[in-house]
Write a protein that binds this DNA or RNA. Structure first.
Lengths: 252, 252
DNA sequence: CGATCTTTTGACTCTGATCAACCGGGGTGG
DNA sequence: CCACCCCGGTTGATCAGAGTCAAAAGATCG
């Protein structure tokens, strides 16, 4: 019955509880843990695009869970150059791992309108009584590991790949993650990023991103419609980008 | 007396116990913790340069502590391109944070001869009985945060800085870390990296690293002697690289 | 004292940046 | 209702930072 209700919610709101689904996919949750996570994600606030959820160097904000919408983590140099470290997609949890007294090492910025739940209690739970929430703790650890793996992929893109490879690789990563969150249909995935944002993530100029995307389309590897992308020829893309999805430890 | 012995060791071996000093600088250790850490670092093995301590994708190796020597973490693409993620300096601890069942997300490679202690017990201690080793646990958390901060700096270098800025920034980071480990004398710090290694870290070609280093020398910002570097004009370097050292949470 | 590794130099190429302008749609205000 | 504006995407022309190829010159080390 619960499952049915969730599905009904999913259909109705389009997001239901991606967070619960995602976390649960890392480690099977006990009923208590499931309820706990549900309660956390029940309280949520809506945030418009372009909101700074956290500013680098300033005291840390609450941890959160992204119920819907896209955000990114970034740092801005004094002269205005911006580097995006990665993206937060629906279902992602952020701000969990860091020390309470620390200052934020990165800014967090919403790229679309977002629905965000406060995850302070989740952090407290896995920090203070991990033995009571073992699967939750484990799932969060896996999530943190995954996040690191994505960051390392990002470094490789920036350091050793061409513009063509970088873009292919990033789109594959996003498609992969959206698929894990159950947000794709076939080879088509939502894609609300502007070319400027892609440029700031991949260390390229806006103009060059535009031209490279055109090249990818001309090569019949991807298609864009509205704010979604279609990765036709996904295998060829993977081979171009030498894309190897990070392995998630089995949910034993 | 203990302090005196340590200093004597430090003078004799040049490394004594950088690890204990470094970890202790993050959080003041209790006598028990201090002893614990000392015992761990007492058992150490010597490893020649060019040893692969861990290979990406393969099951995880033991965590370790670097008593002396330099190493790096990296990933190699199928076609031979290599991306270095960061460097391990004397006093650094590695492999702590990752899930036991996971596969290594990066390779670890010694760049010089190294002396390495097994840190399995440290990992076990802070994982299983953090309440018994609170300062140790806290110090390791801070260390992990620092490591992440350095990785983010690395991303910014790769994505948004010129070759000249990148090299200045990297040298500043290394000098800073070596200073924290007590391995500098004045503005001079050890620098055993080859230009090829610098190139693989900064996403540049060997030739371009060579030319950019020459430029930095011609501009009287740095000097190289033997395998050490001298950052004269450190303020100007910092301004060129927009270098801002990561803030370490106060050891309250 | 070879053998090998690292640094240096020169010539040339090319990927990607910069500057500048234009297009097209969606919203806004008069 | 339409002119206007703003934002995101597109295009063209030019430039420069960095890569590549090839070879020589120093270091280091058995």
């Amino acid at each position: 019955v619960v499952v049915y209700q969730q599905q009904a919610e999913a259909i109705e709101f389009g997001t239901s509880n991606v967070v619960v689904a995602r976390v649960g996919s890392f480690a099977p949750l006990s009923p208590e843990e499931d309820t706990f996570l549900h309660n956390i994600t029940a309280t949520a606030r809506d945030v418009p695009a372009g909101t700074r959820l956290s500013v680098e160097g300033e005291p840390l904000q609450q941890p959160g869970a992204l119920l819907s919408g896209w955000a990114c983590t970034a740092r801005t140099l004094p002269d205005g150059r911006r580097q995006i470290f990665g993206f937060l997609l629906p279902g992602d949890i952020f701000g969990l791992r860091v020390l309470a007294e620390a200052t934020a090492p990165r800014s967090i910025l919403t790229l679309t309108a977002c629905r965000i739940a406060d995850a302070s209690e989740l952090k407290a739970a896995i920090t203070n009584e991990p033995e009571r929430f073992p699967n939750l703790a484990r799932a969060c650890a896996i999530s943190a590991d995954l996040e690191e793996a994505y960051l390392l992929d990002h470094v490789v893109r920036l350091g050793r790949q061409t513009a063509y490879e970088r873009i292919a690789h990033l789109l594959l990563e996003l498609a992969e993650r959206l698929k894990l969150a159950g947000l794709t249909s076939g080879t088509t995935a939502p894609m609300p990023l502007t070319q400027e944002v892609i440029a700031d993530a991949l260390g390229l100029s806006l103009v060059h991103v535009n031209r490279t995307l055109q090249q990818l389309r001309r090569d019949h590897l991807i298609e864009f419609r509205a704010s979604s992308m279609n990765l036709i020829q996904i295998d060829q893309l993977k081979s171009i980008a030498t894309f190897r999805p990070p392995r998630i430890p089995a949910a034993s």
